[in-house]
């Protein structure tokens, strides 16, 4: 069941040089209990998508996003973009929670870990006694694998290591058992061995709470490990959306293919020439007409300047490339 449906999401920013469309018609669905990976390079709109869903974009530079973001958990159904601001407070943290890349800047340095955990509980469960809140907070810290939680709860963020802080962030996000967890590059700032711990933890908690996770990352290795479905984004648009095996085994979009070929893997021959995607992402002010990838695409043709619409390749596999059929055939 689709718990979150994003339809034609457009987010524009007003800048000194005019308005910029950071997201230009993004569509995807997030299924209950599954993990959707949002992949792409810096500036492709991954984080703007997550902030648009949470309605956390700063005003007035970030105009309110247009389109639809439908939340539907079976009993409750509404469009997040049309909700009045006071209702948002009930959604954030309770229904959709978020963890960020850098836990040190997203935790408040002047409050203890326990205070910040209980703050979330206070907002959403005003009738809970403070004794019960403390017990719950300790329980949450235990769940995320923090040793000696009764002592750690009185500590400040700077007293914890990077991995511990990210665990605390996860504990705060899970305090009210949300249905959706948005994780914006949660392991990018961590070392590989710590990253493995955190990914392990997230998988276990997902199973336990049956949450849907929107996992934003640029690391394709992490995607292969964590995600059920993948959305590849390029310059504010979804290039390809498919189950994870499809993306890695039968990529259709030239950009997805390029990305997969350009990473050195453990079995890549040493110092052999790596595949390069020519050039770089165009400036958002001077995007080409039609397909935004055309000036870097090895298969670009005249019709790529026409407006593109996502095409269904297979059940659940969508690609927005006008030539995907021809390209596939050429290779076979």
């Amino acid at each position: 069941m689709a718990i979150l449906t994003v339809k034609n999401l457009v987010t524009t920013f007003q800048t000194d040089r005019g308005s910029v469309r950071a997201l230009d018609g993004v569509d995807f669905t997030l299924e209950k209990g599954r993990t959707l990976g949002l992949v792409g390079e810096s500036g492709c709109g991954k984080s703007v998508t997550s902030l648009s869903i949470m309605r956390l974009l700063p005003k007035p530079s970030g105009n309110s996003p247009e389109g639809e973001i439908i939340y539907d958990d079976g009993s409750d159904r509404f469009d997040i973009l049309k909700e009045p601001t006071e209702n948002l407070l009930k959604i954030r943290g309770r229904k959709i929670a978020m963890i960020f890349q850098d836990p040190l800047t997203s935790l408040n340095p002047v409050y203890t870990v326990g205070y910040q955990l209980m703050e979330t509980l206070k907002v959403h469960f005003s009738k809970m006694s403070s004794q019960a809140m403390f017990t719950r907070a300790v329980e949450l810290l235990t769940d995320v694998g923090i040793p000696a939680p009764e002592q750690r709860i009185h500590e400040y963020p700077h007293q914890l290591s990077g991995g511990m802080r990210q665990r605390v962030m996860i504990a705060i996000a899970l305090a009210c058992e949300p249905d959706i967890l948005i994780a914006d590059e949660p392991t990018t700032a961590l070392d590989v061995t710590i990253q493995a711990q955190i990914l392990d933890l997230m998988r276990n908690l997902q199973k336990k709470n049956d949450m849907a996770i929107l996992f934003i990352t640029h690391d394709l290795g992490v995607v292969a490990e964590m995600c059920d479905d993948v959305c590849v984004m390029y310059a504010g648009k979804v290039a390809e959306h498919a189950p994870v095996e499809e993306i890695f085994n039968h990529p259709q979009h030239p950009y997805t293919k390029g990305l997969l070929c350009s990473i050195p893997k453990l079995d890549t021959e040493q110092k052999s020439k790596l595949f390069e995607i020519e050039g770089m992402v165009p400036d958002l002010f001077s995007m080409p007409e039609g397909c935004r990838f055309q000036n870097r695409c090895p298969y670009a043709a005249e019709k790529c300047t026409q407006p593109q619409s996502p095409a269904q390749v297979k059940d659940g596999h969508e690609v927005s490339c006008i030539r995907h059929g021809e390209i596939g055939r050429n290779e076979e």
Partner: peptide
């Protein structure tokens, strides 16, 4: 360290050796 590298291939997911602590 080597077992913790996320390999970009969903078919090749190996058993992880997760280290404890920091």
């Amino acid at each position: 360290l080597i077992s913790a590298i996320p390999e970009p291939d969903p078919a090749q997911q190996k058993e992880k050796q997760v280290l404890e602590g920091d």
